[in-house]
């Protein structure tokens, strides 16, 4: 019954071919370190879902950011859970993405023909760190405020253009309402768009080129 419907659907969409290409790929004998990319993708999905849920109640304004987060934690049913998952999955994602990068590096999996996959991966690593940096300010508590003050000050030490970078990040000389809204925009619109696009390229390349085997001794 089900297979009849699947074959009807496949006749019109080619969905089975897509499924086989994506999930029934031939892979060499690998180990558990090769699951870190999938783990990163899973954590990103978790962040998208919980992040969208948080945006239902969060307000990116100095007057209301802190209060709205308090409301999520104490006033909204399961708000503590949704924010908790977003918080912990964020830290875990930075860790997992970094370990994924180390795995690829130490197994030499970045070599021909997978250089572009590596480069897109570097973009994804940096965008993930950017998500961590911008998301950290949003609760607008003391830790968030001063961590961002320090972080943007560090960016300001770049020779020559440091002052410009500092002002561009903060939207002025000081941390303000303008900083909060531009970090919010970066966190929920710009960086997610970059990450989604580059994940698409990254996955296409992984599927097209296949994954590399564990290097043998003396290789």
């Amino acid at each position: 019954m089900a297979s009849k419907w699947i074959s009807r659907l496949d006749e019109r969409t080619g969905i089975v071919g897509v499924y086989k290409t994506v999930f029934d790929r031939k892979i060499p004998k690998v180990n558990w370190w090769f699951t870190l990319g999938s783990a990163s993708l899973f954590l990103f999905s978790v962040q998208v879902v919980t992040g969208i849920l948080l945006s239902v109640y969060y307000v990116p304004s100095p007057d209301h950011a802190y209060d709205s987060v308090q409301y999520i934690m104490t006033g909204v049913q399961f708000g503590w859970l949704i924010r908790g998952i977003h918080h912990w999955a964020a830290s875990l994602m930075v860790l997992v993405v970094f370990l994924h990068m180390l795995r690829v590096f130490f197994y030499g999996a970045y070599k021909y023909p997978r250089e572009i996959t590596w480069v897109t991966g570097v973009v994804l690593l940096l965008a993930t760190l950017g998500m961590g940096f911008t998301g950290y300010l949003l609760p607008w508590n003391q830790k968030a405020y001063w961590a961002t003050t320090v972080g943007t000050s560090i960016a300001g030490t770049v020779p020559g253009i440091g002052d410009f970078i500092l002002r561009a990040l903060r939207g002025g000389t000081d941390l303000s309402a303008v900083t909060l809204t531009r970090f919010f925009a970066a966190h929920v619109w710009m960086l997610p768009l970059v990450i989604l696009t580059v994940i698409g390229i990254h996955l296409y390349l992984v599927i097209r080129n296949g994954i590399s085997a564990v290097p043998k001794d003396h290789e």
């Binding site: 978790v46 239902v56 006033g75 049913q77 998952i85």
Partner: peptide
């Protein structure tokens, strides 16, 4: 585990 709380979360003010 995530889906049921998510529905409660969205419906919270209405409840």
């Amino acid at each position: 585990v995530v889906g049921v709380p998510a529905l409660g979360y969205l419906a919270s003010p209405a409840l």
